[in-house]
Design a protein around this nucleic acid. Structure first.
Lengths: 232, 232
DNA sequence: CGGCTGCTTGATCGCTCTCAAATGGGGTGG
DNA sequence: CCACCCCATTTGAGAGCGATCAAGCAGCCG
């Protein structure tokens, strides 16, 4: 039906770290593979949390919408990352929507299977705990930024973070690999697309970045770092 | 040395849910009890994450400070809650400080012990994962609020949340049980103590709350809910 | 080539921060 | 028991960041 999964791909999945070979085999054997094309979604906010995923290929944007319809981007996930972990244990619904921005393949376990596997292979649960702890740390940092920092600095931090997790060197500098609209950046940093546009344009005038439609190339990372970190 | 731990206290700890009696015994036997008086702390931001705690009695305020010295309140923890979970697994340092606001007693496990227990009793790891998932959910909600909502609404939500987790009925209404300064509320909601003071005073004039030094009593919860939820 | 979608830019408004100063409650020491 | 002091709080005045609204521009696809 679908292509086999390359073993080296599985070995680089953080959730599977330090899992011995037989355990890894059993875990993967219990999974099904789900493919979703760009534009689709693995799950949507409010649905019952039926399954837990590990993304193998592609890219996913996790978003939430507020009661009054404003959208917020929670994170971008790439190959190797977990999806749907928060809804996993406490029999609850998905807190966000996992929108597929590049066609994706993921391993899928339904809830009872995931829990059974974690009970059988505690390493899995510990890894999940560690990874989720990392997410918690990251989102706490974002909260701190939202609460205490000016917009320009938040945008600089967001761009640098995105470059770190999905940056590719091109001749002009570092390109953020996936389509990233001004609106997306606004939803990550808690501002409006107008302010994002003005800020990025300002940076372009200073030669810090090069812009395009849904494209950002960082020419002078140190410049952005100065904006992000300087205690002026 | 110290008073024995009442079993009914342990049974209400979410981390220990569905743990059988012998496992619970073993887990508690592996712990030491640590007492910290009001004003002290269980751990401080930046220290190596040496231990993991379950609070038995008292109250703890978890805070972070930014590079430029601004403080942010992450959460308030009461009896039964975990502390130091984020630093537990990924051999990292504590992302925040656990300030004791009411003299506290907690069970303490050092890192290697915690990990060993979770491997031995996977239920523990799964419970921790579920609880941490709840924290993640909550902090995501706060991020969403910070990014999209006006200050008055954020303050209303914060006050209601605090009342839900530490409210006690008194004759005038619902009192938030622990000393809560305007500054604290500001650090929770990402604003300034001036704005908090103005907002609360406004509510007092409308009869929604009664105020005192480090005290808030909610007289009309539905009024606050209207402020927090109405899609005006 | 036309339309769609994403982006830029200008003008204006107002929420919230900031700084300054006054007020008051509560505990402590005399 | 009283007076004092400290600290949380209130309140005012002013400034400015960033939101909002309104147009116009530009890349991209059919």
């Amino acid at each position: 039906m679908s292509r086999p999964i390359r073993p080296e791909l599985l070995e680089s999945v953080p959730l599977f770290r330090d899992l011995d070979a037989s355990a890894l085999d059993a875990v993967v054997a219990a999974a099904t593979v789900r493919e979703v094309a760009a534009g689709g979604s693995f799950f949507r906010q409010g649905e019952a949390g039926a399954a837990f995923y590990v993304l193998l290929e592609g890219r996913v944007k996790v978003t939430q919408v507020t009661a009054d319809g404003q959208q917020v981007v929670v994170r971008f996930a790439g190959p190797g990352e977990m999806l749907g972990c928060v809804a996993l244990v406490s029999g609850s619904d998905y807190p966000g929507t996992a929108e597929v921005t590049e066609s994706s393949r993921a391993l899928r376990w339904d809830r009872t299977t995931s829990v059974a596997l974690m009970e059988r292979y505690p390493r899995l649960a510990l890894n999940a705990l560690a990874i989720q702890g990392g997410h918690l740390r990251m989102i706490q940092a974002r909260c701190r930024e939202l609460a205490t920092e000016r917009v320009e600095r938040r945008i600089a931090r967001a761009i640098l973070r995105l470059a770190r997790q999905a940056g590719r060197r091109v001749e002009e500098g570092v390109l953020i690999e996936f389509p990233l609209s001004r609106q997306d950046v606004a939803e990550i940093t808690g501002t409006t697309l107008y302010t994002v546009s003005r800020t990025l344009s300002g940076w372009e005038k200073q030669g810090l970045v090069t812009l395009g439609r849904e494209r950002v190339v960082i020419r002078a990372p140190h410049g952005l770092v100065r904006i992000a970190e300087d205690l002026v």
